[in-house]
Write a protein that binds this DNA or RNA. Structure first.
Lengths: 349, 349
DNA sequence: GTGAAAGCGCTAACAG
DNA sequence: CTGTTAGCGCTTTCAC
């Protein structure tokens, strides 16, 4: 017999335990779930039977009754990216802590796939959903929310709606970045970003850029804005190419502010290949503070997002909602901070 | 009413459809699952009812009958690490492609937690398990296997046993690395690794190191072996510190071969801080080829593991087993290759 | 071609 | 304190 095609042997059921212990199945259920008092003596009989027959309750059968199998769905564009995987670490960590299971679905930044997977998850058996989307998709989110499925939106500001959300303050974060650069005497600050149209997150950062410039009376120069949606999939490579092209045109800024550390890596490399020294000639500032930013050359000055914490908070909020705990804030804003390292210094004028 | 504590409205069931369409429950089931012939006319009635009442089958109820909810459990030490997250990308991708759902459990390199989580998953409702463990744990794996739970071991060579496995050839991979370094005239090759005792993977690489040296008649020097288990959690930081300490002792190798790119980053930085130029003074070679190795300074020469492919293959194998397809090979070895970049050059003698 | 009914393993009334 | 039983929503025999 091919040992690969073996069938699982039939598991022992609550009925077997009841027989073995000589009690009713409800009694077994009651000792297992501690759902009503059972005399020490009967309890022991049940426990012995459980031990002897190596019984574990069938979660599916339980789920069919209780409509809850303590499982949370998580939708994310790309689990292999450093930012997402660190947030997911925080999500899973909290799920495990609170005895829930996490189902992960990746969308590959594909809009249709995102909808398909989400619907599939909802139709399956989850108790709630963390939506960590690649796109603005308010209509769709609203539809899910209106189905009364417990839901937390992660990393996307929906504005003034009722849907539970955990975000950072993207606008202020970038604005603070500009403040920082300004303090270091930078007045010609290039901005490297995804295109701003498809995602609130990205748009808010762009607004932060504009607001920061305005605040310090720096004139906005559209030539200094480097945007591409293609970078979504080839982050560092493309920012490298774009910045290299840009530098060849000769309009040289004193600093680059990027919307993701992975872009900053491309900028760093482009600068090096074009013969500029960082930070002596040009400064570079990232966003995210992913792990490798502490090992670039020079070490990357960046704006930190507390990724693991964001994951923790999102899952905690969702489970609080599911378990009907009191929710103080439906919109949680987690703080960012500037991590000063080596890639920014005083601008020479 | 607090909109957060709303209950999911009751979903429409197969019974509702039967009523609506004026047919038997079994008929509804049969058209949905195409499990026996139904006349075009009745079929249409059912389909209309499904459409009208927006019916989707209850997966849990189905699962209770069929003992299968097309869900795979994946055990992994740390989802936030670049290597793991890329493999998981491949795992999830294939699961999705074949219409399965992935449950993810992280163990944080904690031995007890690994067992606890695995048992929990097995007791839940999975159809199979991909075990991507942080430890050697043959006894435990064997026990799972003997329970006839479909199982694939990822990235761990169990030797000559029957359990389905997908691995790289760690020994040859490192040996090839030594060959490469030898070709570049290196004779004093330091080796940076986790301790070799707890994991087959790591031990095999160490054997590859020894074998490579022997093959080229390089005398083994224990002082050149830098190992620490602590690096598990602080990979780059600790390799940095260890290598810095090591360099201060004055016994300087011509090359460092590391067992992970993240270690190589630490080496790179330690070398820089101690005033050595890479590759002019000392060469550095990594292992894994994670994303950021193409952006280090200098660009890292390394041994590539095809991470996404490994994930694809593992999930594919597992699903083939579950679906009783013919299995050609129970042990799949995926090839590695050397990625030549900038961090290795000819040794000066 | 279709329907009736048993039953998957469990929880939660209800009864005593 | 404990037992009996209905039923969650589905698949699957068996009967017609």
């Amino acid at each position: 017999m091919d040992s690969l095609s073996r069938k699982k042997q039939k598991a022992t059921s609550i009925k077997d335990i009841a027989n073995q212990a000589g009690v009713a199945i409800s009694t077994v259920s009651n000792v297992i779930n501690k759902t009503r008092f059972v005399s020490a003596q009967t309890e022991q009989k049940v426990l012995d039977a459980v031990e002897k027959l190596d019984y574990r309750p069938n979660i599916i059968a339980r789920g069919l009754r209780t409509k809850n199998i303590r499982t949370i769905g998580v939708i994310v564009p790309d689990i292999s990216s450093s930012f997402f995987s660190q947030v997911i670490y925080g999500i899973e960590e909290m799920a495990r802590k609170r005895n829930y299971t996490m189902i992960l679905g990746c969308t590959g930044f594909d809009f249709k796939e995102e909808i398909r997977i989400t619907n599939k998850l909802i139709d399956s058996f989850i108790s709630g959903l963390i939506f960590f989307s690649g796109f603005d998709n308010y209509e769709f989110i609203k539809k899910i929310y209106d189905k009364n499925i417990p839901l937390v939106i992660l990393d996307k500001d929906l504005g003034d709606v009722d849907i539970p959300t955990v975000v950072i303050d993207n606008l202020s974060a970038i604005e603070t970045g500009i403040d920082y650069l300004y303090k270091y005497n930078h007045r010609k600050i290039a901005y490297v970003s995804f295109t701003k149209d498809k995602q609130t997150t990205v748009r808010q950062r762009y607004e932060g850029y504009l607001k920061g410039l305005k605040k310090h009376n720096i004139e906005f120069d559209p030539d200094l804005v480097l945007m591409s949606e293609e970078m979504r999939l080839h982050e560092t490579e493309l920012s490298y190419e774009i910045v290299r092209e840009f530098l060849k045109k000769g309009k040289i800024p004193t600093a680059f502010l990027t919307v993701a550390d992975v872009f900053a890596y491309g900028v760093l490399r482009a600068l090096k290949d074009e013969g500029y020294k960082v930070p002596d000639d040009i400064s570079v500032m990232g966003f995210d503070n992913i792990l490798f930013s502490q090992f670039t050359n020079p070490l990357l000055t960046t704006i930190r997002q507390p990724k693991r914490l964001m994951g923790n908070i999102a899952m905690n909020l969702l489970l609080d909602i599911i378990e009907n705990k009191e929710i103080k804030e439906k919109k949680i804003i987690v703080p960012t901070e500037i991590i000063e390292r080596e890639s920014v210094s005083y601008a020479k004028n």
